[in-house]
């Protein structure tokens, strides 16, 4: 007991006698504010680099343009869409704002599926190789920081910018919707919009990681940009054509069991393209009446009333797409991480 009572005061006196600690405890608040962890110092620099760069400003302008373009059409189209008694989605005013279209311009989420990759690629294609070529990478690596801080910070910084961008845009649209319609979003709508934002961020993060991967792999920024754009074009244009050609060649016109299997496989192939995953997922989230993404048999459709799904059910439908996108993102990041850690960093 005696030891227990005396020891703390001794210890306290000892602690107080150390000048360094005294200073620290005395200035605790200020020092905490002053020193930033080196990792966050890199992230901070990345974020400010992105925001100040012309590239980002142009991409931002483009995204904002398509956002407000589709919003304009959606707003014009809104009374008509809401008056349609046959539409089970007519109660979801704010989801309509994000997904409705009269056919002149694709709805916002489809456009984003097309242009989101460009944003991701634009932010990541020269992440590593430009720093290596300009000689700043060696200088950075000569500082007492872990090597992976660099690549992690590149990813985190860009992700923070993308996240903020999509949050701001979506909430801006919602806010405008409140002004235009005079209604308040329902909690379910709000949650669906949040889900949509998360999906957008993951989707752009996938393309960001892919382009970071190329920026580790290729020495020249132009090569990595072109490769990333080639992958993007392949999935948006040629992939469908290729699968379509394969379908024509393989599937015989008659109805047979193998023919059905081949067709199913081809549909699955189409479905796993990243932009398809994104479009499917966002459509399900934004249009509550979507109840299946695959083909349904007549038996399955029998007795179904055209109504909306609850958020939980929509999430169930969309779960494979979501995990697929996350898996692709993580795989790209893991591979670029691996490559970067083994990279010869001299320029």
């Amino acid at each position: 007991m005696k030891i227990n009572t005396t020891l703390p005061s001794h210890y306290l006196a000892y602690v107080k006698s150390i000048p360094l600690l005294q200073k620290r405890t005395g200035k605790k608040r200020t020092t905490q504010k002053q020193s930033l962890h080196p990792f966050w110092a890199i992230v901070q620099k990345e974020v400010s680099d992105h925001i100040g760069s012309w590239r980002f400003i142009i991409l931002l302008a483009m995204i904002t343009l398509i956002c407000f373009g589709s919003l304009y059409i959606a707003v014009n189209n809104l009374p008509e869409a809401l008056a349609n008694a046959k539409d089970p989605n007519r109660d979801f005013v704010f989801l309509k704002l994000l997904s409705a279209s009269d056919g002149t311009l694709p709805p916002f989420h489809i456009l984003l599926g097309f242009l989101g990759p460009l944003l991701g690629i634009g932010m990541g294609f020269d992440a590593v190789n430009s720093e290596q070529n300009s000689g700043t990478l060696v200088r950075l690596m000569a500082q007492p920081i872990h090597r992976d801080y660099f690549i992690n910070a590149k990813f985190t910084g860009a992700l923070m910018v993308i996240g903020t961008l999509f949050m701001a845009l979506s909430f801006l649209i919602t806010g405008l919707g409140i002004l235009v319609t005079g209604q308040m979003p329902m909690p379910e709508e709000f949650l669906r919009i949040i889900g949509f934002i998360i999906l957008c961020i993951i989707y752009v993060a996938f393309w960001l990681n892919l382009s970071i991967l190329f920026s580790v792999k290729f020495k020249r920024a132009a090569t990595s940009a072109l490769t990333a754009i080639a992958v993007w074009l392949f999935f948006t244009i040629f992939y469908q054509i290729l699968v379509g050609m394969a379908a024509k060649a393989l599937v015989s016109p008659g109805l047979s069991r193998t023919g059905y299997r081949v067709q199913k496989l081809l549909v699955t192939l189409l479905d796993i393209a990243p932009n398809r995953l994104f479009t499917d997922a966002t459509t399900t989230i934004l249009v509550p009446s979507v109840r299946s993404l695959g083909p349904l048999s007549i038996q399955q459709m029998q007795g179904a009333i055209p109504s909306t799904l609850s958020l939980g059910d929509s999430l169930m439908v969309v779960w494979p797409q979501l995990t697929g996108l996350i898996a692709a993102t993580v795989a790209c990041f893991a591979f670029s991480y691996y490559l970067f850690m083994r990279k010869e960093i001299r320029s």
Binding site: P38, A41, I42, K45, G52, S134, G135, R139, Q143
Partner: peptide
């Protein structure tokens, strides 16, 4: 072949290094 962030000032470049050194 030392490289600096060319769109930053000399002071900013050095401050960045100081931050990385905590």
């Amino acid at each position: 072949n030392i490289g600096f962030y060319e769109n930053r000032t000399g002071l900013e470049n050095l401050m960045y290094m100081a931050r990385l050194n905590n």
